[in-house]
Design a protein around this nucleic acid. Sequence first.
RNA 1: GGUCCGGUAGCUCAACUGGAUAGAGCAUCAGAUUUCUAAUCUGACGGUUCGGGGUUCGAUUCCCUGCCGGAUCACCA
Length: 594
Amino acid sequence: MNLDIRLRSEIQKAVTALFNQQVEQLQIQPTNQEFEGSHTLVCFPLTKISKKGPEETAKLVGEYLVAHSGLVARYNVVKGFLNLVISDQVWVNVFRSIYSDKNFGTLELNGKEIMVEYSSPNTNKPLHLGHLRNNFLGYSVAEIYQALGYKVHKVQIINDRGIHICKSMAAWQLFGKGETPESTNLKGDKLVGKYYVEFDKNYKIQIKELIEKGVSEADAEKQAPIMKLAIDLLLKWESKDSDTVKLWRTMNGWVYKGFESTYHRMGVDFEKLYYESDTYLLGKEEVLRGVESGVFFKKEDGSVWVDLTSDGLDQKVLLRSDGTSVYMTQDIGTAILRFRDFPKIEGQVYTVGNEQEYHFKVLFLILKKLGYAWAEKCYHLSYGMVDLPSGKMKSREGTVVDADDLMQEMADEAEKQTRELGKIEEATEQQIKELSEMIGLGALKFFLLKVDPKKRMLFDPNESIQLQGHTGPFIQYAHARIRAIIRKADSMEIRPGKEFDQVKSLEPAERQVIMLINSYINKLTEASRTYSPAVIANFAFDLAKEYNQFYQSIPIFNESDQAKLKFRIAFSQVVADVLQKSMRLLGIKVPERM
RNA sequence: GGUCCGGUAGCUCAACUGGAUAGAGCAUCAGAUUUCUAAUCUGACGGUUCGGGGUUCGAUUCCCUGCCGGAUCACCA
């Protein structure tokens, strides 16, 4: 059984025996580094039932535990804090059970299912730095839930319809001269993005010309020929004009193909893609149904609204007066469709930037009003913007960092540094490329994931590319070094068994590491509860750091005691495994050597 | 203006949801290696946790108030 649970029940027994009263809530926390011990019982809350001062209470509980529990070797009391020292024998047992558990860190399937949505880009702009945070976050949260025994469905919604798509189409028709990704050797998303920019450029010029001719600004925005063309395309698309639909299909196809290669490099994937062009009609139906049942209401001009003023929000439009759907309508449809597709999911996680917090608050409320119980289990995984040292990222000012470019730069830099260090002389070119990719992306992912998602963060390209410090490559390096030890042990035919009874005592660094690994499942749970991969990222960093201290202070192969030597090999093996597992939850691979 | 989120060391971030003398990384300075991979480790320096009140044994955390930054409040998505 888990040490923490055992200890908790032992303390409960002690309290009951000593004070003749049961306590449900025991406050147990990790002991501060400066004191001896691993678990600390906070005794202030117990004074009520013990009728004694905090220190006296702590002392009584401590003495009882040493005498009766078999887990606690010693204790010390500082103010009202009871610090418990677990015996090394117990720690070795904890280690052994982790070592012999092949599936450590992965819980058995619990029969629950959830859905995680992430990415969901616009189809007219290539992916950028913000999308990287989005994708890495969503993917990681999905992995974390999976490790906890959930069946996870990874999906995204593709915003494939609307005026913005038609803008790219219009510009391509006017200036494209039949260009294709093949003819230009451009990624499909980049090509379409180029025409989206082209549209904007020409649109502005045309507006300016009209204004110079004396047209008002508002009219100029409507009369600009290129905008008229885009609107015309939208109307044709909605009436299913075959040429327009064909062009729409073709250009979206280019984008999807481009995105696909970006996703592949990011290392993320999706079980199913949803398209707004497939869901907006369902949303519309649902809204009309809501009008009939009185959940929504219709205004004189025919537009449909929901009144959320009693919930402290505003009124919100759901269908325009011309009957067409808005963003919210589509999201209602999408949500319902997903629960139809996957009836067993108990909830949905939407990975979307925090500028849409209001939108999701409204969406969940509407779904609840429509009578969907699962609305309670929908969660908006909201994350902050990624800033650059130069300031805000703005596409208009050209300060956007393109996702493909950034990943390439990271890999290039990693390769440069790897070659400079020259530790991989016998590696093939192919292996160097793979390693650079692993390190470069590891650096990028770790940097973006180590920060609490809800916080706005600063991405400093120069700093992120440093491979030392609180970074992914630091952890990757720790892993690679351990693997070198394992290889050496293997070649020396030192093979640890599963019994470590002869290991009677532990070095402080060893104990620290076992304590950390013992907390892994707790960390996983915390990460899932808070939807924060940062918890895992920081855990992995702490573990690597703690192990490095052991590595530095204890030369493994100098050990003459065979039992200890074998233990330390096994110990190192477990650290490498846990590093690998926790990094995998972040979507980061760890190398055998680097 | 209303609502929501944030403000912690020079910089980038933690702090197990109310616990002990608020911790890491970077930067700066001082050390350790003829190695199990130094892409490492040890130490020093660095704090009015935005200000002011309150709640209590105890507050970065909860409440009130003010300040600063951001987001949002569209028949845009």
